[in-house]
């Protein structure tokens, strides 16, 4: 709050010229205008859609491969070494390849978000499954539970906490990937709004876009926290 006041003061006194950074009041005003003419909502919807579908694809791929390599030995032999190798590569560095493979439309943006989601989800799901207490599995075995039942009743539930950690990292990376991905020739979305504003030196609009990014990130993070608190009730108290 004090920071915003200081920022406003710097802008009003001319220490901070508007072509470097617009004043908070101007930003709020522009936000109001962008909301009023529907631009912000359109951009918001497009960006949210990209994150959503990118996340779905990434979660499906990361989740499925995490399950396969966590639950079966051959799956692990087959999948884990290449994934462990690839994960050392910053996925944002893949942009040039994605552009060559998928062009400059929606696909590379989705691919970027999806790859940002798939890795943390895979790693944490795999680790979560492997961390299952063998004692619990054994206890279920003596109670006559089949391998499939042991997976359902013991292995997967015990992988949930670690998977939720992965989910939170994945969502954070999803937004980051989106922001970077939307720099590639976007013709809609928050990234387009920001890039366009840059062309016209509209620092106020740039800031509005950044604030929306931040709010979206915070919101999804809060959602996962709520989810964690509900699902992991058994951990505390």
């Amino acid at each position: 709050m004090a920071l915003v006041l200081l920022w406003q003061l710097a802008s009003s006194t001319g220490v901070l010229p508007p072509e470097k950074l617009a004043s908070p009041l101007t930003v709020a005003q522009s936000a109001g205008e962008l909301i009023a003419d529907g631009q912000l909502l359109d951009a918001f919807t497009v960006s949210l859609g990209r994150v959503f579908f990118g996340f779905l694809i990434g979660a499906a791929v990361g989740g499925a491969s995490g399950l396969v390599s966590g639950l079966s030995r051959w799956g692990e032999t087959l999948l884990d070494p290449p994934v462990q190798m690839l994960r050392t590569l910053p996925h944002l560095g893949l942009i040039p390849l994605f552009i060559l493979w998928f062009g400059i439309g929606e696909e590379p943006k989705l691919a970027l978000v999806a790859s940002g989601v798939a890795f943390p989800l895979y790693l944490n799901l795999h680790a979560g499954i492997r961390q299952t207490d063998p004692g619990l599995v054994e206890a279920a075995r003596v109670l006559g539970y089949s391998r499939f039942e042991r997976v359902v009743h013991v292995v997967l539930p015990s992988a949930v906490p670690q998977t939720l950690v992965g989910l939170r990292i994945a969502l954070g990376t999803a937004w980051l990937s989106l922001i970077v991905g939307e720099q590639i020739n976007a013709d809609a979305g928050l990234g387009f709004l920001i890039n366009n504003a840059r062309e016209f030196l509209r620092t106020d609009v740039v800031v509005v876009g950044l604030v929306v990014y931040a709010l979206l990130g915070l919101t999804t993070d809060a959602l996962v926290r709520v989810l964690e608190r509900r699902i992991l009730r058994w951990r505390t108290r």
Binding site: D133, G135, L136, A139, V142, L143, V154, P157, S158, W234
Partner: peptide, 16 residues
């Protein structure tokens, strides 16, 4: 029917 109780209770912590 065989049952066993181990040194550790080995309860599933996520089940009441």
């Amino acid at each position: 029917t065989v049952s066993i109780a181990f040194q550790q209770p080995r309860l599933l912590p996520w089940r009441k």
